[in-house]
């Protein structure tokens, strides 16, 4: 498939329409000089990735992503940032001087992965076949069955991890009051 053939498919326009902003937003996440902006760019990147999921007919996961990531995780981020008194509008240097080695490492990762993708694709005769029609939404029921049958134990394990994280988070972030302070608190 040549590039011109590829670009002729409208669905690929949609892909580009999401992928390009996504990459740009991701770049801004790691280069922005304001933490809040970085977090908001992450929202953009994640929203685009949710769009890609819909493109890949994984609708449920897309909305899970929106609900959990945008609705909760990023809100938590912003919450945390603001509680630690994010300077409004002020820009600070959020990176340190390891920028170039880091860029080199990242490039290395990309190069190796890209090379691998290429090699494997060629080796296996390519996955270049067009995807079956869009709109073939996976029945959510299949997911549910997967969770409680085949993946029951991982599912429980993940639940356990979440619980542990919850308790851990509370334990870590809680301000320990001295007994005197507790008494004070009880008075009010």
């Amino acid at each position: 498939m040549t590039f011109s053939e590829w670009i002729a498919e409208p669905v690929n326009w949609a892909f580009l329409a999401m992928a390009i902003p996504m990459v740009l937003a991701a770049l801004r996440v790691v280069t922005s000089r304001n933490v809040v902006h970085a977090a908001l760019f992450l929202v953009l990147a994640l929203a685009a990735s949710a769009g890609l999921f819909i493109l890949l007919s994984a609708e449920f996961v897309a909305w899970v992503l929106v609900l959990v990531y945008i609705g909760a995780v990023v809100v938590l981020f912003l919450f945390g940032i603001m509680i630690t008194r994010a300077p409004i509008g002020r820009e600070t240097n959020l990176s340190h001087n390891t920028r170039w080695p880091a860029a080199a490492a990242a490039l290395g990762v990309f190069a190796v992965t890209f090379w691998l993708i290429n090699a494997v694709t060629e080796q296996m005769g390519g996955f270049g076949d067009p995807l079956p029609a869009v709109g073939r939404a996976t029945a959510t029921g299949i997911l549910g069955e997967g969770f409680i049958n085949r993946y029951l134990i991982p599912f429980e394990a993940v639940g356990f991890v979440l619980l542990a994280a919850l308790i851990g988070g509370i334990t870590l972030a809680r301000k320990d009051l001295t007994p005197a302070e507790e008494e004070e608190g009880a008075r009010v």
Partner: peptide, 10 residues
Amino acid sequence: SIGVYGLLSR
């Protein structure tokens, strides 16, 4: 890769 860059440089 972008994530790796951010992880290492921020």
